[in-house]
Design a protein around this nucleic acid. Structure first.
Lengths: 206, 206
DNA sequence: CATTGTGAACGGGTTCACAGCA
DNA sequence: TGCTGTGAACCCGTTCACAATG
């Protein structure tokens, strides 16, 4: 109700709600309940209701939530009711896979440009993208106003790249390089590191 | 001290400590403190000390922690003082990038086999791997005793694949498919979904 | 009557602060 | 003196339980 800041842990769950709801919608469902959504996601019904109630009263007692309405609300809250252009830095195997990933479309994102510092790669094409030189990174970001970046460079290059990105105006960074990055408070970073996830699970193995 | 179960949130931080410590070691450092490690990772010094103290008294008052000793301890705790063979299911672009990823070696993991269900791909090679048919999935897992799997199939196929993996004895699953999976309590699942991470950040954009 | 929204209770993770020790 | 290990205090996210309502 009030406009105190929403805990980050709640923001982190909203994209999962959105994914599940759109999948239910594709499957033909029109309505759902906190219980049904919770079972699907392994989250308690009470938590889902509490999370959603932070942003408004989206449900109806006795009948639950309209899926299409809730999808629109969540997309608006997460600001993915538009398309965010992104720059991708690092044109290795992983960068190639990400540039060609079709899972960004319709979810609010689009790769606009791909950068690398390897002279052998610059000018080459991956999918529809011509690989651009790092020297163009800053001007291209500034002129386009892009705020979102993904990094798939080696760890050794990542912090330097981040510094350039931040200076150029990037506000959100998805980092695939296996290293912790330092950024100002105004910039958000999320990490994707398969080894970290794997090591977290081997703890429970014999 | 006692052997109560360690909270999962602590286990989740240990791999990050390990990465940072090994990077410090590579840079030539021999000793560190909870404060230094904390600054590097954006974690409070008290939290690091508390986390580590769950597993033993690894430090020395006045001087801090021996990096090489702590690395060995963490690797033993996380059970990555050995190499876990893994199966990879899904030989698309992402599967290709993962199969060729050199970041698993020395971190406790190795891709042993790659599976797909596309007749056009079966028998083809990606890197040193010959793509195997899904019909061989269960027998190959059982005969090798592999416990770790990665999934890079489309979302629509993921749950069915998981059911097969679980039945064959897989205990840890790293899932790249954008869907929530249902597994028994004895099986751990971790998720990697770039869209989820990105949407979590756009909330904070204008 | 099923299901939401929510104040209150609860639980557990984080921080504090300091004794203890090299 | 510098830094660890840790009980206690604190804080905050989760769960509970129920009034409210279509």
């Amino acid at each position: 109700m009030t406009d105190k800041p929403i805990p980050d842990v709640i923001v982190g769950r909203l994209p999962r709600y959105l994914r599940a709801l759109r999948q239910m919608s594709e499957a033909g469902a029109q309505t759902t309940s906190s219980q049904e959504l919770g079972e699907r996601l392994g989250i308690s019904a009470a938590q889902i209701r509490k999370d959603l109630s932070q942003f408004g009263e989206f449900g109806k007692q006795g009948t639950g939530y309209s899926i299409s309405f809730l999808v629109r609300q969540l997309q608006a809250i997460l600001k993915v009711d538009r398309t965010w252009e992104m720059v991708l830095v690092g044109a290795g195997d992983l960068g190639h896979a990400i540039a060609g990933y079709n899972g960004f479309a319709n979810w609010g994102f689009h790769v606009a440009m791909v950068f690398d510092n390897d002279p052998q790669k610059i000018g080459k094409k991956i999918d529809e993208y011509t690989i651009l030189d790092m020297s163009e990174l800053s001007p291209k970001i500034k002129e386009s106003g892009i705020q979102v970046a993904m990094i798939t460079t080696p760890a050794s290059a990542a912090q330097e790249v981040v510094d350039q990105l931040v200076k150029a105006g990037i506000k959100s960074i998805l980092n695939y390089a296996p290293i912790n990055l330092h950024v100002p408070n105004s910039v958000k970073v999320q990490y994707i590191d398969p080894v970290i996830h794997l090591q977290r699970m081997t703890y429970y193995l014999d």
